[in-house]
């Protein structure tokens, strides 16, 4: 049971199961939903990181997954030298510093340019981080093993179960979402960040140190991404490709929820997780495996029908 609960079908080409329809096997259905929510919470956290950058700098960060992967490798290195928690927090700090430095050095010149430039630069960062990780840590998977908090038997209600790791991931996703919500809606700093994202000129005029806000946005986002990376590495072994597929699902989640909404990112992430699980089981084997195609389909449908996503504000066209 635990294997389904963790990340069954996260990767393409997983075996296609034959399944009875939901009305004949409701507990399978419920199990799929629960485990979908669990794996979806990983997508949600990475989607939160994407949304965070998009709403503060209007840049879509294609390197988000690889940055998270890179910092997770660093966390792994730290963990060979110290305990989990100190290593984890050191990794988060390094991630924040890295995110902030990237904004200052690399992204700053393309922030005001056409989106093509920023997309190209983040794609460049994507392969740079991937290559660096391969060079430093090599192609062999690194075992991370679930941390003790997440160990132990699954929690079951009748015959529907959820693993502790999955539950923990979900809780972390909700905490991150709540923290970001409070930051943006309840603090002056968050208000200033929202203002900066919206109108840089006006923000300067009311005295907001705009450059610091943008740097802060990237630092925060890289930190959130690092959280996602460490959580992913808890359930599957860590390689340089680990976060690549998750990035696609996270994009689908962010688009579904609305690229500028942190609540949307979480709702989107959970929905994508559930959809993916359901499609892996209920799409008949004659069709073939469709988990990745499902993410693509969601992206296309949302963009066609409601480009602002479920929770996003329809953007005014920028002249």
């Amino acid at each position: 049971m635990d294997s389904i609960v963790s990340l069954t079908g996260l990767w393409p080409d997983t075996a296609v199961m034959l399944a009875a329809p939901p009305w004949e096997d409701p507990s399978l259905f419920a199990q799929l939903i629960i485990s979908g929510i669990a794996s979806g919470s990983l997508f949600a956290i990475l989607a939160l990181a994407i949304v965070l950058i998009y709403r503060s700098t209007n840049i879509l960060n294609f390197a988000q997954g690889e940055m998270a992967m890179f910092t997770t490798f660093m966390a792994w290195t730290f963990m060979t030298r110290m305990d989990f928690w100190p290593a984890f927090f050191v990794a988060l700090l390094v991630a924040a510093a890295m995110g902030g430095a990237l904004e200052r050095l690399v992204l700053r010149p393309v922030e005001d340019g056409p989106p093509l430039n920023s997309v190209i630069v983040t794609l460049g960062l994507f392969t740079i981080f991937n290559g660096l990780a391969l060079w430093i840590w090599g192609p062999l998977p690194k075992g991370f093993g679930p941390f003790s908090v997440f160990k132990g038997s699954a929690i079951c209600a009748s015959d529907v179960c959820i693993g502790r790791l999955s539950l923990g991931t979900l809780i972390v996703a909700l905490i991150v979402m709540l923290a970001l919500y409070l930051l943006f809606q309840r603090t002056g700093l968050g208000l200033a960040m929202r203002a900066t994202a919206q109108n840089r000129l006006a923000s300067q005029l009311v005295g907001i140190p705009v450059n610091n806000m943008l740097t802060l946005g990237w630092a925060l986002s890289a930190t959130v991404g690092a959280v996602a990376g460490v959580l992913v590495a808890q359930s599957v072994s860590l390689t340089t490709g680990t976060l690549f597929v998750i990035l696609l699902y996270a994009f689908a989640a962010a688009v579904l929820g609305g690229l500028d909404s942190s609540i949307g990112a979480v709702v989107g992430g959970l929905s994508i997780g559930v959809l993916k699980n359901l499609s892996a089981v209920y799409v008949p084997p004659e069709v073939g495996s469709v988990d990745v195609a499902m993410a693509f389909l969601v992206i296309v449908l949302v963009l066609m029908v409601r480009p602002a996503g479920l929770f996003g504000r329809p953007a005014a066209r920028r002249v």
Binding site: L248, E286, G288, A293, A295
Partner: peptide, 22 residues
């Protein structure tokens, strides 16, 4: 801009799976 980038990114990731559909 960015939306188009996401959609085409998703397309190229997904396309092998589509080609392999039974």
């Amino acid at each position: 801009g960015p939306y188009l980038a996401i959609a085409t990114f998703a397309l190229v990731i997904t396309f092998p799976q589509i080609l392999k559909l039974n």
